[in-house]
Amino acid sequence: MQMLVAKYNYWIYITLMMIGLYAMIAKNNLVKKIVGMSIFQTAIILFYVSIGAKRGATIPIIEHGHGEGHGAGTHMVHAVDYINPLPHVLMLTAIVVAVATLGVALALAIRVYNRYNTLEEDEILAQIREK
């Protein structure tokens, strides 16, 4: 039980992801699908960032370090004092990817709307079938 409670954060993010995934598959409106996509990607970002957490540690910016004298002897830095920087770096990348994907998705949705005058998938398919 103790072990399971320690991972509730991951479960919250997985639930969020699945809400996004459900919206992407089941929603009829193309923009709602895009919203679902954003939820999915954001949940993954939260998931990764939570990997970086470390009990009793602070943000990964070294204190009193101002670039002058970068010798090892100036003062010791201990890994336990700072949280893991790597997931933050990765997620900065993933955020940018999510933004670019969102932009492209909206551009495509605009093109689809200009063509069919609707964003409801079933109406678009009906229009295609009519021809």
Binding site: M24, K33, M37, F40, T101, R115
Partner: peptide
Amino acid sequence: PLAALNYLYMGTI
């Protein structure tokens, strides 16, 4: 565009 949008959803998943 519609086909590409569908591809985008699947590709993103």
